[in-house]
Design a protein around this nucleic acid. Sequence first.
DNA 1: GTCTATATCCAGATAGAC
DNA 2: GTCTATCTGGATATAGAC
Lengths: 209, 209
Amino acid sequence: MRQEDTKQRILDKALELFSAQGYDAVSMGQIAAAVGIKAPSLYNHFPGKQAIFDALVASTAAQYEADTDKLDIHVQNAARDIPVFTEITEDALFEKVRQIFEYSLHNETISRFRRMMSIEQFRSPELAALYSARYVERVVRYHAGIFRALIAAGEIAAEEPEALAMLYVAPVLTLIGVCDRQPEREGECLQKLRTHVRLFFRMVHSGRS
Amino acid sequence: MRQEDTKQRILDKALELFSAQGYDAVSMGQIAAAVGIKAPSLYNHFPGKQAIFDALVASTAAQYEADTDKLDIHVQNAARDIPVFTEITEDALFEKVRQIFEYSLHNETISRFRRMMSIEQFRSPELAALYSARYVERVVRYHAGIFRALIAAGEIAAEEPEALAMLYVAPVLTLIGVCDRQPEREGECLQKLRTHVRLFFRMVHSGRS
DNA sequence: GTCTATATCCAGATAGAC
DNA sequence: GTCTATCTGGATATAGAC
């Protein structure tokens, strides 16, 4: 199906452009040129510019779930990952964060989509909610589930799982934001990620019952 | 000077519009209408649209420093604030974060400028660096200075000040981001801020020498 | 499905009268 | 400093031939 192929190519190029310049700054002509066709031909695949944007939002959700599966991080149900974190060492914990960190930065679709969302997060209440849900709540809820299990197992200090998750996750999100803006600082941020994990690991184990 | 008055009104209205819709989505006509003049008259005060944006970036830096002074938070040199944090209670610490949190959200200029920066952070390397410097590095460095002093005084655990600062500050930044996108969740975020401060305070004191 | 040609609109910016 | 009138360019989108 060359038809569906073109549709996908439009989505890919549109995401590339939107993530770099923002929705408003990108013209239909630019998208068409990137795909290798003329602007009016885009309307054979999408009814308009907004429809391309909407299709992007819808389609990336699926890919995210599919791809994170490969990293043994199942954001939709933390229960499956609890064995991975049980009696985990500090080095192994860092290795785990490092993987998701680098994946988040280097997977083209994921990182482009996140940058696009950063630019467009105030465009509508729906996008605002989607941003918060995807990049804050989901990550916090996932880790809260992990920490709840580790507390039950007596491995870490008995603190509120939600607060622990926020403490652990927010610095990671902040560092991802820095690298999104300034990719040349990735090495430095990786260092900070390392010291963050070390500190968190130590603090959370020192107070254990 | 009614002249300078108009110039300031242009900046105010432009910031209001840019923060809500982004630079590209706002037209000179919209800005002019908000000020109460016609579009060509804007060119008597600024050479073009970009110049209005640039003036905004330059002028808000000054106001930020001036306003935070009133809250006894001197981001430029933490040394002055160390006495405030020495032997601080958990409640007093929360009250301090709560103040800066609410100020950041409710001061019109500050919150609008931050939203505008969120939208435009990828527009140029300079803006990217400015965003990181203002909303990450500066805050982290400030708190690292405070924590370094508290460690020297034997008040808190002897961990790396930078990592401690990241741990403390990143959740606050994340919660401000949530409220920027979804102001209706401010109450909920204030609750999370409370539990964050409580957890951090306890952890950092439990490991003290 | 792709194209050319075109319609319609609105943007940023300038000229010049008052 | 403000205005009206205008220039010029580029945007989204449609019509209709191939």
